[in-house]
Amino acid sequence: MSKCLVVVGGHRYGRPVTSAAPLIRARGLVKRFGDFTAVDGIDVEVRPGEAFGFLGPNGAGKSSTMRMIGCISPPSGGELRILGMDPVRDGPAIRARLGVCPQLDNLDPELTVQENLTTYARYFGVPRSTARRRAAELLDFVQLTERADSRVEPLSGGMKRRLTIARALVNEPEIVLLDEPTTGLDPQARHLVWERLFRLKQQGVTLVLTTHYMDEAEQLCDRLVVMDGGRIVAEGSPRALIEQHSTREVLELRFAAESQEAFAGKLDGLGERVEVLPDRVLLYVTDGDAALAQVEARGLTPAAVLVRRSSLEDVFLHLTGRTLVD
């Protein structure tokens, strides 16, 4: 039990950071379900105060990894240490210091908004009066104070997600696990969730999240890994990943003709990589405008042109492919 400030997850202020020992450390971590290998030997380190992301298409092994970190899914192989402890042996002790926001909301619809927080707080041994005060603070934090006595059922998706995030914070966790925190939310709700998560990060809470939204990863993550087929295919900061796996700019050309292929051949030698999509051609280049001038110099006249900076999405699609994963 530690003394800490009444800020969300404010342990960092109450306890001197003695070393930057990783809070989560996985070595060759494996998860198998029968013959299927969901996580195939990954190495991960998450350091205190960091916002760490798992990116990947559906079925990449992100959620399985999160469940192992959440100590509700025993690893099938490899090594996993969370807060220096063994998740299989010390599950309850680790979970006491984690906050979990699952992919599917599992709030109790029979309870009010406030009761969802206070009953959950009791699972962490938080005394009743502390739980009530904590619930009030957290409802303020996620902007649900005026809905405190409302049932959960009529809340919007964004409100439910914010309540789930608040519930994940009742025990002032050192690590908050968020599995696709904004999937299914409208843009306003997403931005509000991002803003609150950013505030948590500023307060020193370690965030571990999965997402397949690239803008979410760029907004929130200090460091991330891209997973595909249960393996880590790239690792680094969003900026570094773009530098490493993509060019600085992308020139998007849309030709009026039926097939873009016909034009693609005439672009040889321009840029580092040419990608032909059914509706447009992407040129990965250092300088988009210069490349466009060269395109025009070759007598090509695209119907539409877009010069943009390379994004994490380009990296993601490059690494994990454009094939649809269901």
């Binding site: 009444v6 404010g10 962490f124 041994g125 938080v126 502390t130």
Partner: peptide
């Protein structure tokens, strides 16, 4: 914030 509270985090 400066207010200090103790939130127990155990079982």
């Amino acid at each position: 914030g400066v207010e200090v509270s103790v939130v127990q985090r155990s079982r």
